[in-house]
Computed example of a mutant assay.
Amino acid sequence: MTPPDASHNRWSDLDRPPLDVPALRRGLLRPGSLWTSLDVVGTTGSTNSDLVARADALGEGAVLVAEEQTAGRGRLDRAWSAPPRSGLFFSVHLVPDGVPAERWGWLPLLAGVATATGLARAAGVDTALKWPNDLLVTVDGVERKAGGMLAERAGDGVVVGIGINVSLREDELPVPTAASLALAGAVSTDRLTLLRGVLRSLEHWYGKWRDAAGDATASGLQEAYTAGCATLGRRVRAELPGDRALVGEAVAIDGDGRLVLSTDDGLRAPISAGDIVHLRGAAGGLS
């Protein structure tokens, strides 16, 4: 007879082993590193909510990882859920001293660049970024969402949460437009390797951006985001606060990280917040 809690047993799915916490700490918590603490919990509602509550006590560089999230959140408070140990669900605490607060809006975009670069090296899978903070992979010629980022203020800093679908099978996906690294043909789905790669990439990009006082141009962040952004060059619909919508071609990411649309009446409209729908996807459909 199967125990009633078998689905939450750390060894219940041998294809999805638990993270090796000592190995992660040995590889990441080194002298001079951005990362100062790393904790892994078996299950929690949201790593972002947990870390926001503890951010001041833990200080900059704290990393909180969950093997399972039961109330994970994306943009617009959308739910983000996946089977235990099937993905990477983690949050980091950053305190960008010396960076003007008006430039902190680049942090979720920075997390996107860092995640995409880290996964390209560690998973060997091509990724793209949908403005402002979705991670896209291609499955059977169609772009689908495999991850996302969410930034929240926490005292004197920011908590950035990252969620990545790693080994989800087709029948485990929450919606048909979702995907996982495995479905995209990743050469590795070892979560320890992937998490280490993303955190090292995040440390690299955050260091460059902070050293440039948050200047996205001088740090190379604006150029990197633009190069990896699948939204640019597409006709899109921006669903804006207040039940407004704007349709146009996405033509640029400006110095403040805003998406610039060229509308049908010839105007240039910078979008700082909104939900973006790709009206011409890679396969000719909506995304």
Rank of each mutant, 00 (worst) to 15 (best):
L286A: 07
T177N: 03
I271R: 11
D140S: 09
P96K: 08
R200P: 00
N48H: 01
R121A: 15
L34K: 03
P241C: 08
E102Y: 03
S272C: 09
L195T: 02
A182M: 08
D140Y: 01
A238P: 04
S262Q: 14
A238C: 07
H93P: 00
P270V: 15
G242N: 01
L183P: 02
R235I: 13
V159K: 07
L34W: 08
L181C: 02
T43P: 00
T177V: 10
D13A: 04
G233F: 10
A179L: 03
T47E: 09
L64D: 03
R153Q: 13
A62V: 10
S167Q: 10
R210G: 00
G214Y: 02
S201F: 01
D15A: 05
A216C: 05
V65L: 01
R237D: 08
S81I: 12
L129W: 00
R103I: 09
R26P: 03
V63C: 12
P31F: 15
A116R: 15
S86H: 05
C229I: 14
L136F: 09
D5N: 07
P22T: 06
R258G: 14
D190V: 10
G98S: 12
W35D: 00
R85M: 03
A273W: 09
A178G: 05
A218L: 15
F90C: 03
E223K: 14
D256P: 00
G185Y: 08
R103D: 04
H204P: 04
L202I: 09
P17S: 02
S262P: 00
P83E: 05
R30E: 12
L19P: 01
A245H: 11
S33A: 15
T231V: 11
E170Q: 15
R237Q: 12
T47I: 14
L107Q: 02
T44L: 08
D215L: 09
Y206A: 14
V260E: 05
S201I: 04
S86L: 12
S188K: 02
N48P: 06
L232C: 12
G161D: 06
V236K: 02
G124D: 12
S37P: 02
G59T: 13
R268V: 09
G42Q: 12
L194R: 03
V277R: 12
G27C: 08
V95M: 04
G155A: 07
T36S: 15
G207N: 05
R191E: 03
E223Q: 13
P4K: 03
P3G: 13
R25I: 02
G59V: 15
E203G: 12
S262L: 14
D77R: 14
L107S: 06
R144P: 08
G266F: 12
V41P: 07
